[in-house]
């Protein structure tokens, strides 16, 4: 974040930093991304591992929340079955704006190895996805990298969500 130190203020003993609203808001948003605990399948185990002792997600300001009302990021970790798809969309709708989606693992990206009647062939048929994370199952480091990429993306966005027309938001 670009900060512009103002001399006359500091000389008066006041710690003032000037920045734009966009940068301030995005700084706040990107550094406290709270994902929804939405473990679907195998990848959820790796998602838990990345929240646990060795990989420690908390140091990135990422704390898993159990309620969609409190969450900013939905990490779709694992295979989304057709029976579950309705609930995934409902949880996405319940999340408050601004919200982002990480599709974790091959199954969530394209259906992966489960090219069957019962699996949704890519969660982008249901919800707009910001980050696609390959792997089966992706390692916890990969999930952390994906989250850092998402932070980068958020910092580039405008604070006014109406201006951020999502590229792949073709459903609404």
């Amino acid at each position: 974040m670009a900060q512009h130190q103002v001399n006359y203020a500091s000389s008066a003993g006041l710690p003032i930093a000037l920045t734009s609203v966009d940068k301030l808001v995005n700084w706040g948003r990107s550094n406290s991304l709270w994902p929804l605990t939405y473990g679907l399948a195998c990848c959820a185990i790796e998602m838990m591992a990345s929240g646990a002792s060795r990989y420690d997600f908390d140091r990135m300001g990422t704390i898993f929340r159990a309620s969609p009302r409190q969450a900013d990021v939905m990490i779709l970790a694992g295979t989304l079955s057709k029976k579950h798809s309705e609930f995934a969309r409902r949880l996405y709708d319940q999340m408050t704006e601004p919200k982002w989606v990480i599709s974790m693992g091959s199954c969530a990206n394209t259906g992966g190895m489960f090219n069957t009647y019962a699996t949704v062939q890519g969660v982008d048929r249901i919800v707009p996805v910001d980050i696609y994370l390959p792997g089966c199952a992706p390692r916890p480091e990969t999930l952390q990298y994906a989250l850092m990429m998402l932070q980068k993306k958020i910092r580039k966005e405008s604070a006014d969500m109406k201006k951020n027309k999502k590229q792949n938001l073709r459903l609404v």
Binding site: K82, S85, N115, Q121, G122
Partner: peptide, 26 residues
Amino acid sequence: FASWYEVDKIFGKEYRNIIGPENRDP
């Protein structure tokens, strides 16, 4: 039926054209 199940269920049949058929080829 199976390939359109989630689209029909969530958005309705009229959204089939918008979302398109299942495409696994990135």
